[in-house]
Simulated scan of single mutants.
Amino acid sequence: MRKRLALLVSVSLSLAATACGGPEEDVKTKTRAEVEAAIAAQADAIATTAGSALDGWRTNAAPCTGKNGETATDGKWHLTGFANIPIPPDKQVSTLGTIRDSWRQQGFEITDDRTFADNTRSSVSMRNQAGEMTVSLSTTMSLDSAALIVASFCYMPAAGEDPANDG
């Protein structure tokens, strides 16, 4: 469990850095509720395509990180959602392939597409510029599910909100 959590944190930080750009970048203002709804809808769509349900969905807001590792001090924030999607071991690689194909048909940019040497595990990631998010989906070592990470792009906080510091 610790290894899985460490991997999810590492991947989410790299996705967030990719999605956020630098703190000096001009970004949109959105409420936390708007962003949560958008990434939850994307996660639900992926689970539906996989023919399963999200297991353990949770989100975390944090300050944006720039390309050089700098942390935004002006309130810019992003939201990351995490879950597992139960998928039978014999369907892991084909299910992730189906999800990748669905993303391609929707015009999303595929940023990672790998099947590991043992041919039982795979990983696929995308960037949805219009939806302002990145997504990573990887089979787990236990082969009982796929780990899903959905990270929003960066936003300025809406009036009265401070998601970067509220978690």
Rank of each mutant, 00 (worst) to 15 (best):
V27M: 07
F82L: 15
A151W: 00
A47W: 00
S136W: 00
G75L: 03
F82Q: 01
R104A: 13
W77I: 06
N60E: 14
G160I: 09
L96Y: 07
T48A: 15
Y155R: 01
D44A: 13
T31K: 11
L13Y: 10
T140K: 06
A38E: 12
K76R: 13
I39F: 09
S142W: 03
E70C: 00
V35R: 04
R127C: 00
L79P: 03
S125H: 02
G22E: 10
G131Y: 08
N119Y: 08
G22N: 15
A146C: 11
K28Q: 15
G81E: 09
Q42L: 08
I110F: 05
G81N: 08
Q129E: 14
D90H: 11
F116A: 05
A16S: 14
C64Y: 07
T49E: 15
A164I: 02
G75H: 00
V124N: 04
E24R: 14
Q105F: 01
H78C: 12
L79D: 04
L96R: 06
A159C: 08
A147I: 04
D144E: 08
D26T: 13
G56W: 09
P163N: 05
T120C: 06
D26M: 10
T120H: 12
L143W: 08
W103R: 01
H78D: 06
Y155W: 13
E161N: 08
F108Q: 09
T98N: 14
G81M: 07
G81P: 07
C154F: 04
R2F: 06
A164F: 06
I87W: 07
D55R: 13
T73C: 05
D144C: 02
W103E: 00
R114N: 02
F82Y: 13
T98H: 03
A53P: 04
A159F: 11
T115L: 03
R100K: 15
I149M: 10
N119E: 14
S10K: 13
A146H: 09
L79M: 11
L79F: 01
A158S: 14
S12C: 06
M1G: 12
T49Q: 15
S138W: 12
E34K: 10
G107N: 06
C20W: 05
E109Q: 12
E24D: 15
S94K: 14
A130L: 10
T80C: 09
E109F: 03
V93M: 05
S136M: 09
P63E: 00
R2G: 04
W57P: 03
T80K: 07
Q105Y: 03
I46T: 09
M141F: 11
D118M: 03
A151F: 02
N165H: 12
P88V: 08
A61N: 07
G56E: 11
C154Y: 04
A130H: 05
S14I: 04
L5T: 09
A6F: 12
K3N: 12
A37C: 03
A61M: 05
A47R: 10
I39E: 07
N68I: 02
G97I: 04
I110W: 02
R58Q: 14
T71C: 02
R2K: 13
A146V: 09
V135G: 01
S145H: 13
A43I: 04
A147H: 10
Q92F: 00
V150Y: 00
D166Q: 13
A50Y: 03
P157D: 05
A19H: 04
